[in-house]
Nucleic acid binder design. Structure first.
Lengths: 249, 249
DNA sequence: GCCGCACAATTTGAATGCAACTGTCTTCGA
DNA sequence: TCGAAGACAGTTGCATTCAAATTGTGCGGC
């Protein structure tokens, strides 16, 4: 219990990545925002496993900040649905039940369908070209069976698509909702069949987008998200997720 | 500048209302939650006008709490999009531009359409009966031209409909999004023609819901929200909203 | 007379200290 | 031996205090 957070001692690399790319911006970010950023990463990537208690004092020493900004960050993450806030008993990383996952993907499918609909109407030629480029890069990763790279590009593509909807509020809402299930999707290792299907769906996506066919794109994305949901549900049912933590309903 | 918040000195009544109905529950609520609740009301009802600066010290003395829970509440409201957080310069009540309003309603229409779709599939007979009852109460208020009562029942109906979708995440997302434009809708005084149309749309809603026609209900709600958006936009354009504050883009 | 710089006052941001609550362990009684 | 009650440790919640940043003002130079 002493080194419960030993598995997140390597968080320095995230800070490095941030500092390397946007050092000026991070320094202008308030402390609680930086803390929120790092905690969010830890939660989404599963470094803090679902169901784990967030001890304020431990996290203070770990992140080298006072309790005030840490608490503000935790409050923020609670509003995003990444942690549960138990009154007088602190915060725990959310552990989604199967029902929660179904509800999350139900909303996520609608939001991504909506974003696709709008994107098909509003995407610029430059954005479309970039999206196609990312798609082909992802196809390359697929051909090499480079799963991490595939996963990364996949996320980039979806992010670019959402942004093409040109609705900042939708983008923010989608990101919040997506963050909740991100830690689950992070651990899905595609089987060959599902992977192939997902790639095919991505091809259809690009096709519909090129044709500016908003209705078709909406449909494709909705179904695509349903398949993603099924993958996660499968993993939940077979107990591949949460292997070493008992359920807390 | 000394009594800039003189217009919200009457907030005691909100506290009274809460205490009268659920004193046990409120006492179990943490302080920052209570503060957030009251600030949210002040913002949504326009007691703190859009664009107004939220001075921490003033609000502390006004709400009789320390700065810590107040700051936590403000952070929460910022994540909900009710206030803008300027680094080192505090928070201001959001002042939505026309573009913001369009984006908000775009998302709101989709969410309410989705909720209606799900509600038509999942609503219980008891819930439907209650919804019909509320509808007829609202019709009574319409007949009496009792606008405050109509507005209140209207909100209750929409809330009940959303809840019938049985998706807690959708409900929460809808409420958050709705809160952003609530302060605007709070000041819309329907003209006779638009009011009549809104009532007709509500009748169609109940009809579609009774028939469990999810696709039709979705369509009705989407259009209904578009009309509400047009009403708000009209008000923005004619300058009926924000009469005494200059625009800050 | 106007522009610029510097200093001070106000306000926000962060840290520490104190109080209240929760959970657990021990001890006493049945 | 088991159960319950009380005390203690640990953790969270809130208040106060200290530090940093920004804005407004006044003085001096151009």
């Amino acid at each position: 219990m002493d080194d419960k957070f030993a598995h997140i001692r390597h968080i320095g690399r995230f800070e490095d990545k941030i500092h390397a790319t946007e050092i000026t911006e991070i320094s202008r970010l308030s402390l609680h925002d930086q803390v929120a950023l790092r905690l969010r990463t830890l939660l989404v990537e599963g470094a803090i496993p679902p169901g784990a208690k967030l001890n304020e004092r431990e996290l203070c020493t770990l992140l080298k900040v006072s309790r005030t900004p840490l608490r503000e960050a935790i409050k923020l993450l609670a509003s995003e649905g990444l942690v549960d806030l138990l009154p007088n008993r602190g915060a725990v990383a959310v552990k989604l039940t199967e029902t929660d996952v179904i509800h999350s993907f139900e909303l996520l499918a609608e939001l991504e369908g909506m974003a696709g609909d709008l994107a098909a109407q509003r995407i610029t030629d430059a954005e479309l070209a970039e999206l196609r480029a990312l798609h082909f890069e992802m196809m390359a990763s697929y051909a090499r069976e480079d799963l991490p790279s595939y996963y990364h590009l996949n996320a980039l593509i979806h992010s670019a698509l959402i942004r093409a909807s040109k609705n900042p509020l939708l983008i923010k809402t989608y990101n919040n909702t997506n963050a909740r299930v991100q830690s689950l999707r992070y651990h899905t290792n595609h089987d060959a069949e599902k992977w192939k299907l997902a790639v095919k769906e991505h091809e259809n996506m690009i096709e519909a987008l090129t044709a500016r066919d908003s209705i078709r794109l909406r449909k494709i994305l909705t179904v695509h998200l349903q398949h993603k949901r099924d993958t996660v549900i499968d993993l939940l049912r077979t107990g591949k997720l949460y292997p070493d933590t008992q359920s807390t309903p």
